[in-house]
Structures are given as C-alpha cells and as structure tokens.
Design a protein around this nucleic acid. Structure first.
Lengths: 293, 293
DNA sequence: TAGTCTCTGGAATATCTGTTCCGTCCACCC
DNA sequence: GGGTGGACGGAACAGATATTCCAGAGACTA
C-alpha cells in the first residue's frame, strides 16, 4: 500500500477523532506517533494494513494494535472498519456539497467568503508596494507605531506581536485620548506609522494619523479603499477585502496581509531576527514555558 | 462488510469504468452481475473482500477473480487497488487542485497557504460541533472566558472584541500569573472557557485550563491537533490549520473560524444582539466617533 | 545503585483472504 | 439424442495479515 496522499480535514473520521482526542493524554509516545498518522492519513488506515501503519509511524505492529484497543475498538480491524465507514459516508456529502454552491450552509458560505477575502487582498498587493512597506517596517532605526480602529484592534495586536518578535520598537497606539496624543506627538521624522482601519472609520484614528503626518512620520495605510481618508494621508496604501458573513467585517484578509508583511520583514532582518528568536527561545527553554505536548 | 450506500457517478472509478465498458460485450452473465456491483458499489470493492463481492453479485469467488483478470487487472488485488486509488483521488476536494501550480513568488505562496488554512480549518468544522459551541457562547447567563497562548493573543482579542459587541460577560484571561489564577478561580460551573493555543503550547495556558476544568467550567479547545493537551481537557475541540509562510504560525484559519462562531452567536442572539448594536450605534452617533469618509 | 514498572518491537500463531484447480451443469451443434 | 464447448462455483492451497506473547530496554524510585 502506497502512502496516502494529502487528505483535507473535512474527510476525517469523527468517531476516531473523538476517541483519539479523549484518550490523547494517556497515550504513550509510540502510540502517539501512530495516532498522528491515523489523523493525518486516514486512507492508510482504511486501505492499508497494520504493517503499513506501523512503518509510517516508525513503530511496531504491536503498538498499532495496542492503540486500536486503547481507543476502544475491537483491535485494528475495528479501527479500520470505523475509518472505512466514515470515509464511505463522507463520500456522498462531499460530492453533494460541491454541486450545491454552498448557499445554504453557514460554514460553506464563510469558507467561500473568507477565501475570496484572502485572494482579493493578497492579489491586490504588488511586489513593489510590499517591498516598500517591508523596507520601512524592517528599518530598525525607526520606531514603528501601529494605529488601528477598534474593530480591527485584535489583528493589529497580532501583527505587532509578531513584529516585536523580530525587532524592537514596535508598539500599538491605544488607550485613551491622552495616551494616543502623547504617543503620536512623540513620533518624529523617520518613524513609521501603520494605520489600519476600515470604512466607518474611527475619527480618533484619522485624527491621530493626521497629527503623525504633520510630524513627518512615514505612513502606510491598510484600509478598505483608496478613497479612504487614510489613503490620502499615507505614503503607501494597501487595500484589503473584508466581506463578512456575520454582522461584522472579516479581517481574515487583513491578517493574511499582515502575515505576508511579517514574513517579508523576517526575511529582510534574517540574521538580526534569528538572533532575537534564539535568545527568546533560550529564555523560554530556561523557564520551560513551552511544552511540546 | 456492510453493503455500501449509493454513490453518484462522479465518484466512480474512471479507470475501472473504462475497462468494463471495453470488455462489456464479452462478459458472461455472471461476470456481468459482478461488474454491475463493482459500478454500483465501488466501496464494496475498495473495502470488501472477494467473498463480499461474490455474495453481493450472487456469484462465486472465482467469477470475481476471473472478471478482474479479464479486465486486465492483476487479479482481484489489482482491481481493488485501482478502485482504492480512484476513491482516494475523489476524496480530495477542489482545495488541493487549486494549489497544484505551485507559486514561486512570496505573495502567491502565501495566498495558497492561507487559502488552504481557511479551507482546511472550516472544512474540519462540523455543523454539530459548531452548533454546540455557539450554544455555549450564546448563553448569556454564563460568563465566557477566553484563554490564549501568546502567539495567538491578537486573534483571541479580535474574537472577544466581536463577542463583546453581541453580549456581556466575555473577557480575555491575560496578564500576570496572579491575575490569571484569580480569573480562573472565580470561574464557576456553568461558565464557558475557550482556550486557544497551538503546538509548543504555553504551559501556563494548559495549567489554567486544567484548573478551570476542575471548577466544572465547560471548555472548548481551539488547537492544532486532537493530540493537543488541550483536547483532552475540553468538551469540544476545534482543530485549525496554521501553516505559515514566515517564521510564525498563521492564524488566518483560526480567525476565519472565529468569524464563523461570531456569526453563529449573532444569529442565535438576534434580537438581543440587535438591541445592543443599536445602542452602541446611537452612542457612536452621539459622539460622532465614526465617519463615513 | 539496585529494583521495579512501563514501554516497545520482534517473533510465533491462528485466522483470513486471494488464487487456482476441478467437477458439474447447461447450451448449442452435429 | 449424443457430443462438445464454455460457464460456473465449491474446495483446496498458499500467501498474507491481525493478534498475542515475551523478552529486552529504558525510566523512575527507593
């Protein structure tokens, strides 16, 4: 049996998944390796043999059978039957879902919507604009301020968090009016301001951006349209698609954009950032703050 | 082996179909019966045995093998392998075909990556799981705590921000150890905890989740795998795909998932939330906090 | 450091499964 | 009506596969 090709999560067996999730903590290392393969390559279970699974997980056949029993199945045969059954059931719905343009189910609609947000947003990003923005964000001699409307504050924080891992001097401008004005007032020429806001713009954001511009700060706007009031203040404007399936805008496209920029900055600051990441890693390790499982 | 359910033509094995069509005329009556079953219930071939197929076609095992050979396969084994292969191919939806021409440029690569994250993450979300989680998040009599690893804190905040617009009592558990412990200690039975963390899990997050569980809090985990330590603590586990093009994980899929949940909660709390949004809107209008352009 | 417990994979084994062989049956033809 | 050819399925056989057992290795403890 050849090793299975990639199978998206949609097709995974819920029954098996549940049992693995429940027993997950009590699995031994070797059993865990097998379980990972089961989750990642269900076809290997459905079509393959104990030996195939064991080889894929670099374990012995006995371990495979033990795992199946521990999950409550009647040996490997039971596990296999469960996966086969689920796989067979998934076949029909998958086909029907493709035919119906997913207009009815919420999840499918969101799937389509968010994909469009990603495609549109990153599709609108030119290599030149990206290089320019990355250049500025990667300029360690400049401070980077990030200003965001309330609705996108979380995404902004996410971006800032990542950037902070790569370099110093990146901050979110937030808080009350006094704090914002102070932060902007302290910005000087050579600094960089990323301002992030979508339609129904927050007045204070625009005001703060205006003030920053008068201080000679280099501004990049991330907004929904080139007609945005932010666009006229910024040296560079990156537009994002933010169609939401619920009552709010979706910032999935924006976050995808942020990820691209972060990757660009990381690439630009390669050695500098690597050193930082190493030091951070060492600190985490010393405190054993992170666990593998 | 149970008889398979109906499978639409799209899912049939083209390879086998072709060969049956070609040899169709020269098939004996019994072979023809077997061939009918092969076409009608490919799963019986993929998952079953010679005996199963023979029984389904009211024929002998020898006839099954003869048919397979007559079709040019290397015995029943060859036929089975062909059907399995075709089945596995049909199992992967459009998502994978999209990425086939692997993009070379950074932006294109991210585009594909993030789309896969969205598709995979939302694809893994079952309607049932979503309904359950939304039910709990929309329960206004419960408090909702959100606990997130450092790397995904921004997304968590984004989620909480949206939820706060829809209902009261939603908070991010964050800050120093003392604050976290206090927040978790104050949680009581009936409350809801959403814990969000990906591999290389933050120890404090796991510890806090464990404490919450002992308090009888209903937990939903949003994590990268069912083998995550969070999965065994949670009543529900939603898995996310987080492949990143840069040095960090991408939380685009997670944010898409969050958006779906928010939309679900908004729908569930329709009138309640509408009233809240109206009041918020009025406040903004009174202060002219938002501008159209 | 010695001892115990768990984990682990290899080997033996019993079961299952695909394949082949062969006797029987039926249809067609001389 | 007798003979011949192919079709068919039961049964034996050989190979593969799941399962169980066991001994060695490693970790943790006293």
């Amino acid at each position: 049996m050849r090793a299975g090709t990639f199978v998206p999560t949609t097709l995974r067996d819920v029954e098996v998944e549940e049992r693995i999730g429940k027993a997950g903590a009590s699995l031994t290392p070797a059993e865990r390796r097998v379980a990972e393969v089961v989750l990642a390559q269900p076809q290997l279970v459905a079509f393959g043999t104990v030996a195939d699974l064991a080889e894929a997980a670099s374990s012995g056949a006995a371990t495979v059978v033990r795992l199946a029993s521990k999950l409550g199945f009647d040996g490997f045969t039971g596990l296999q039957a469960s996966v086969q059954h689920a796989l067979a059931n998934q076949l029909r719905p998958a086909a029907e879902r493709i035919r119906e343009p997913a207009a009815t189910d919420v999840i499918g609609r969101h799937q389509q919507l968010e994909m469009e947000n990603v495609v549109t947003t990153l599709g609108a990003l030119s290599a030149e604009a990206m290089a320019d923005v990355v250049d500025h964000l990667a300029d360690v001699s400049a401070r980077v301020l990030v200003l965001s409307g309330d609705a996108s504050l979380g995404v902004a924080r996410q971006l800032v968090g990542d950037l902070c891992s790569l370099r110093d001097g990146v901050t979110v401008v937030d808080g009350n009016d006094v704090a914002v004005r102070r932060a902007v007032a302290l910005a000087r020429q050579g600094d960089v301001l990323m301002v992030l806001d979508l339609r129904r713009y927050d007045r204070w954001v625009i005001d703060a951006a205006k003030a920053a511009r008068q201080n000679g700060v280099w501004i990049v706007a991330v907004t929904d349209s080139l007609l945005s009031p932010l666009a006229s203040l910024a040296e560079r404007t990156l537009t994002v698609a933010a169609a939401g399936g619920g009552p709010f805008d979706s910032h999935v496209g924006t976050l995808a954009l942020a990820n691209v920029l972060v990757a660009g900055v990381a690439d630009r600051l390669r050695v500098h950032a690597a050193d930082r990441l190493d030091r951070t890693e060492a600190a985490w390790r010393a405190g054993s703050s992170l666990v593998e499982r």
